[in-house]
Design a protein around this nucleic acid. Sequence first.
RNA 1: CUGGCUGUGGCGCAGUUUGGUAGCGCGCUAGAAUGGGGUUCUAGAGGUCGCAGGUUCAAUUCCUGUCAGCCAGACCA
Length: 480
Amino acid sequence: MAKNQKQFVEEITPMEVDFAQWYTDVIKKTDMVDYSPVKGFMVIKHYGYAIWENIQAYMDRRFKETGHKNMYFPLLIPESLLQKEAEHVEGFAPEVAWVTHGGDEELAERLCVRPTSETIICSMYAKWLSSYRDLPFLYNQWCNVVRWEKSTRPFLRTSEFLWQEGHTLHETYDEAQEETLKMLNVYRETAENLLAMPVVIGRKTDREKFAGAYATYTMEALMHDGKALQAGTSHNLGQHFTKAFEIEYQDREGKQQHPYHTSWGVSTRLIGGIIMVHGDNRGLSLPPGIAPIQAVIVPIAAHKGGVNEAAAKIFEELKPTFRMELDDREQYSPGWKFNEWEMKGVPLRIEIGPRDLEQEQVVLFRRDTLEKETCSLDQVKQRVGELLETIQKNLLEKAREMRDQKTHVVHDEETFKRIMKETPGFVKAMWCGDEDCEERVKTETGATIRCIPFEQEKLGDTCPFCGKPAEQMVYYAKAY
RNA sequence: CUGGCUGUGGCGCAGUUUGGUAGCGCGCUAGAAUGGGGUUCUAGAGGUCGCAGGUUCAAUUCCUGUCAGCCAGACCA
């Protein structure tokens, strides 16, 4: 055998060595994305888009189960609408794209490409709402938005991204708050149950909250490199927008009232999270819940004694139940295919060759543990189902362990700085609640308060940075 | 936006210092054998060197500008 073995698929940079490069390698080599001619705008290729479709299918069902209906609002928003809510414009104006011409003619009023749709939706809600009997409004839309980003990275921060945004109106503050937390909880369940991605949930500090929100709640996940990813947010918008947009209804006493408002969204950024939470040196490792291909069948020595036929038969048997691929390409060797599908993160591989046929069995290979086992032909369907469930759970478990191992409790500034530098991850610490203190930590360490978690622990009585009394525990991390 | 690096067949790269019109590996096509961890042999096809301008008899090579990407940072729901 020649010493220079051919490399059909380029090696992936080991993730321990250079995580950023690893990420770029993986997404390009697995047909997740490609770059378009315009900076920050990515083509989502079939393998990446299939993951998005699976996320959509699950979440859309959950939204409908919780009483929401889908609508679609326009891409373009008149400048005057965007400017109605002061904090909101200030937050978004620097990163909106403008349409100034229609054909050759300059528009009387320029139009922004939606960076988010609160304004256009509120302008419509104002027309549609008249009585308390109309409430609540529970609507969602799946769409794209554009935010002119200075530095971009596929899935994690792109100038255009796909997402869903829910926008609801309620009679009372309490109802709006309940909705805000209910949808955050749907997000958390999606992250944990579907994406196998553990998250910390809590409230954003005022510094970090959404432009125009009364309160922002978030789920934060931790990546392999110790950086946090804001994976979804749910905002209680109070009456900020409903007053600005003059959304009014007649209440039970016949008085005019402004309703309470929420919005919540997750985006294709989740795909980046899945890649960075589960991936390893062989490439992707996808949770069965969203994997475009849940199991791939690789026939070995396919021409010999009925192997092809047996593989095809298993394929037909499993296809109605699982997302399957039969890799009967003749130009590649089995070994090549093994590596290819591992890189693409297919959770389960089914090998079948002459030796298996003799013994009426197949070989099952798990991507998450790299373990092989044999399974008799008549048990394959059942065993595949079991293993996919096991893999789904194991990935969540492994991700939890990784996160816990990268989560530290800190009581003093020196330790905090050392951890952020040497072994970055989540740091749990008490916080005085002072925005200046929060700002100083960010400037000096690059870490921000990711959230004030719902699950509080009393780690001490004072803030590690200023020594002032502290009542809240927060999670700090460097973030994407 | 700042700093560093990069752009040459589909992919990865060499060539650029000392200008003379392009080379390698993989992939691709055809045929044959092989097939349980990136298979072998034979014969082929394919690029004008990111884009624009300049210098020159002549530019992939030198100069200017510009676009795009990577890495780090600043900024950013």
